[in-house]
Amino acid sequence: MTTDQRIRFLVKPAVFVLCLGPLAWIIGRALTIGLGANPIEYSNRYLGDWALRFILIALAVTPGREILGWSWLARLRRMLGLFAFAYVVLHVLSYVGLDQFFDWWAIGGEILKRQYITVGMIAVTLLIPLAITSTNGMVRRMGGRAWQRLHRLAYVIGMLGCLHFYMMVKSDTREPIIYASILACLLGYRLIAAGRRRLARNRRNTPQPA
């Protein structure tokens, strides 16, 4: 088996199944012991947690690849990003369909009135173009540079996601701060790496003293 085949036939399917794990777990729990005294809140929170986790996982691909030297990680990036989108969609569906039971008036009011929901909804909206342009065809049509520029929105989405979580908790901010710290590391790494690249480029371009 070549490396390419290993990734295509072993790694990717395995990661795909792993990514379905959290969804399978909550469905299994709902069907057996149930989701507790407030199952809808449980579902909202659980899916929201995983949406944010997958956003961070997808954002960890590039630093992980460069730090560990595992170039093949890049081939999982799209799938992980789409799983992040899928869990975000499930989180929103849980809110819209279970929590508010499609009461569009109430939902509209909440989006406008409650800042943490506004922030969350902006993040969801920004994710949509990223999901749409995730195919090979779209990358080709847009051109690599434009595609990459658009997909930098993922950084903003990560920040909005963490902010949404932080604004939503009552008084114990430890958990959202952990998520925000991880995001800060992932984005900070990119800033440093970009700075280094620029420095290296400048050095190459300036004439060296003889």
Binding site: A37, I40, F101, K113, R114, Q115, M168
Partner: peptide, 19 residues
């Protein structure tokens, strides 16, 4: 009188689906 971050007009009774 709403809470800053959510409405107090309705509530979810434990064990019920609709508010």
């Amino acid at each position: 009188v709403d809470h800053q971050r959510w409405s107090q007009a309705k509530e979810r009774r434990s064990g019920e689906f609709l508010r």
